[in-house]
Design a protein around this nucleic acid. Structure first.
Lengths: 154, 154
DNA sequence: AGAAATTAGTAACATTTGTAACAGTCTGTT
DNA sequence: AACAGACTGTTACAAATGTTACTAATTTCT
């Protein structure tokens, strides 16, 4: 009858997720004034091009109201524009503006650098172990489609 | 210039942390009506015995206002009592009541079972890899003391 | 065709969380 | 002793998030 909180896996994951996010967010927060939901939507738009809010929600695993607010904020910054889809007028096609794309091109290398340094500090062996473990967990704990996307992404 | 959100480590950690927490919280939420902050404080009190709010905050990595609210809720449930420390009257010594301890003894095995099943599903090899990777990350990304505690905890 | 159900996105409301200020207590210096 | 500074825990206020309800558009079913 002895549970040690610090060894409890969900707690360890939460603590690490917070630490890694804090570490990564320094750049997009301080240099670009973005929140985490904004960063996620922004990263997806840069990655995939035109998307709808529902698609952003799906790929970012964020609730649609959160996405709605993030998109609004990015729109205020003039980093994206919306266009009503003429075939289905419920949909809004969301696309980064030229300004938004420039910001994306400047921000992404910095974010990649952060991740690269993290993996470098971990070392080859530890990061191989980590990635193996993460992939296995994702397979088990993310819904089938999400896991398939993660697996395919490698 | 191509960042894939689903491969981005902080995002993967956040998504998994959410999934694992959701999975674990089913039990303490539905059966015991506890929130996550309450569960963390409760688990620590059961684990370590009498503590102060500051100590709970330290070991749970939760802000003191969050701890304050969690303690208040657990007190309403009659699961803990406070006693002002006579040597330093700023401090409150917090201890589980007999009722609280009974709940702890009933809840902990269930939570351990959840974790055990998770590790079993992962398999020996994957969980070994996962634990190795997590330990290495904690070493790098949690502050020195926290990491030392985690390492010592094994 | 036309009613009923579904979908996309937003808005209103409630809850949770974070930030800043606070009262009470203790410590150290003079 | 008395003052400044630091510490513990709570409270008041602000910001973020989640839940529900809604409008408008589309699809489905009869």
């Amino acid at each position: 009858m002895n549970l040690v909180l610090e060894e409890f896996l969900p707690y360890r994951f939460n603590r690490l997720a917070e630490a890694l996010s804090r570490n990564a967010s320094v750049t997009y927060k301080s240099e670009y004034g973005m929140t985490r939901p904004e960063w996620r939507a922004f990263a997806l738009l840069g990655q995939k091009g035109t998307m709808t809010a529902t698609e952003i929600s799906y790929y970012s695993t964020m609730h649609k109201t959160k996405v709605s607010r993030a998109i609004f904020a990015l729109e205020q910054k003039r980093w994206l524009v919306r266009e009503v889809d003429e075939n289905d007028r419920r949909l809004e096609r969301i696309t980064l503006t030229a300004t938004g794309k420039r910001a994306y091109e400047k921000l992404v290398p910095k974010m990649q650098q952060i991740e690269k340094e993290m993996i470098a500090r971990l070392g080859t062996e530890n990061s191989a172990a980590l990635f193996k473990g993460l992939a296995a967990l994702e397979e088990l704990y993310l819904d089938r489609e999400t896991a398939a996307r993660a697996r395919k992404a490698g």
